[in-house]
């Protein structure tokens, strides 16, 4: 049809601008502060469970169907199988992502598999033998920390669907910039610094997921994990409050 010429540019920012001398980041936050979180459960009545989550400008929708009868290929006689799919809308990113969004590409499949492993640690699959639980995550707008937001949204959707869970899974991204640990990165910070995504089970304090990109010095890792764990606990507090608010609103409607 036509040859590509131009797409809206993504301006890279130097590390000096990402963290000012006063300790403020590009969006005015301090190093340990999370972005503004908005979440709603039960946004779509037709799905068994659904949740919409915004962390700053990253917006994610998660939907859960099931537990329902598993397809023959995925059926396991003693436990449920969890099927996850990660999709990113084509218009969600700043870069030109013409057909690189959608569901079929390798990064999306990798993230889907990663999400499945994370959720298998927390869903009580023994209670639903021969069944399948479908978790679909759709990224509507991506501004950094996308995978962590997906994990949080999937947890809320599973809770809304009434699937038995051991605990919440709360995730957050973190990084180190000029020896200062940062949490909950936006897209500018992700492009300029290495990124660690950690998920936490708040009651037991265990980490089902740890994913790292680029290079970190091993001396920084301990401090970074502590900071990430604190951020995940903050995310847990926010999600917990939202769930209780949703449940009391639902019971007062009845």
């Amino acid at each position: 049809m036509c040859a590509y010429m131009w797409a809206p540019p993504f301006s890279a920012v130097s590390t000096m601008e990402l963290l000012s001398d006063q300790g403020l980041r590009v969006d005015g936050r301090r190093a340990h502060e999370l972005r503004n979180v908005e979440c709603r459960l039960g946004v779509f009545g037709r799905a068994d469970g659904s949740a919409y989550l915004e962390q700053g400008n990253t917006r994610v929708l998660a939907t859960v169907y099931g537990p329902h009868e598993a397809r023959a290929a995925q059926r396991r006689h003693d436990v449920a199988s969890i099927n996850c799919q990660y999709r990113q809308a084509v218009f969600s990113g700043w870069e030109r992502g013409r057909r690189a969004g959608g569901g079929g590409d390798r990064r999306a499949q990798e993230l889907g598999a990663l999400l499945q492993n994370t959720l298998e640690s927390v869903v009580l699959v023994e209670l639903y033998p021969r069944s399948q639980i479908d978790v679909y995550v759709q990224v509507l707008q991506a501004d950094g920390g996308t995978y962590a937001t997906c994990v949080n949204a999937a947890t809320l959707a599973l809770i809304d669907a009434g699937v038995a869970l051991r605990d919440y899974v709360c995730a957050c991204s973190a990084s180190v910039l000029r020896d200062q640990p940062l949490v909950d990165l936006n897209s500018l910070e992700t492009s300029g610094a290495p990124e660690l995504t950690a998920a936490l089970l708040p009651r037991s304090g265990r980490l089902p997921l740890l994913e790292m990109s680029q290079r970190f010095h091993v001396d920084k890792l301990g401090e970074l994990l502590d900071v990430a764990e604190t951020a995940c606990r903050d995310v847990h507090t926010i999600l917990n409050r939202a769930v209780r608010r949703h449940v009391s609103a639902r019971s007062s409607e009845k």
């Binding site: 040859a3 797409a7 218009f91």
Partner: peptide, 25 residues
């Protein structure tokens, strides 16, 4: 992130539209 967008819901059916503009030869 899109140049134009709209979300439309009718009962339980909802569709989100995002338009991105690029230049081509």
């Amino acid at each position: 992130t899109a140049d134009g967008s709209a979300f439309c819901r009718s009962g339980h059916t909802s569709v989100l539209c995002g338009i991105k503009a690029e230049v081509c030869t």
